[in-house]
Amino acid sequence: MTTGATASLSSAVRTSAASTAGNAQRVDPSFLPTVEALSHENIRRCYYCLKCTAGCPTAYAMDYGPAHVLKLVQLGQKDKVLQSKAIWMCVGCETCWTRCPNGIAAGHVMDALKQMALREGYAPAERRVLVLHRQFLTSIRLFGRVHELSMLALYKLLSGDLFTDLDLGARMFLRGKIPILPERIKGMSKIQQLFAKRPRGQE
């Protein structure tokens, strides 16, 4: 499909949006090409067969299934997508990519949308997911490897989710599966350089 076709699709959506003034979502015609560029996925190929949603392990806990997210991206519904739970609930299992008749890795689109939401200041609909990811990366930034104990402690503090799975954590700890001291690698300067090079908005 050419850009021309997308433009006409967007203008058609805009017309109908105008006719339902008030309830309609703002259409952002630049959204689709932007998400495609960030995700390196050809989202226009999606013909909405829903095979991804049908096989997605976490779709049941999403507000929109993966196919729905792709459709909303096609239709330029930026706010809806970037505020959705769906983008944070994707676990990156690549089932969708494995089965998609059009070769779209919906998980890669979800990642690009998460990054876009953060960069543009959208509050994450699943805050705890973001906090955990950040603490995980913090652990790598500090040690080069993940140190579960400090990561979990920080996650618990920052997420406010203090009590879930405390018993489980204790059982793991008692079995010696959670080391007290971190393993710190020697090449930390390179790791810190990699972190420092991150584009703005992703810190």
Binding site: D111, K114, Q115, R134, F136, I140, I185, K186, G187, I191
Partner: peptide, 18 residues
Amino acid sequence: EDWNCCGASSAHSLDPHL
């Protein structure tokens, strides 16, 4: 020798470069 963490889901969720 001196391997580091792969970044797992957290890196690909938040930071395509890392």
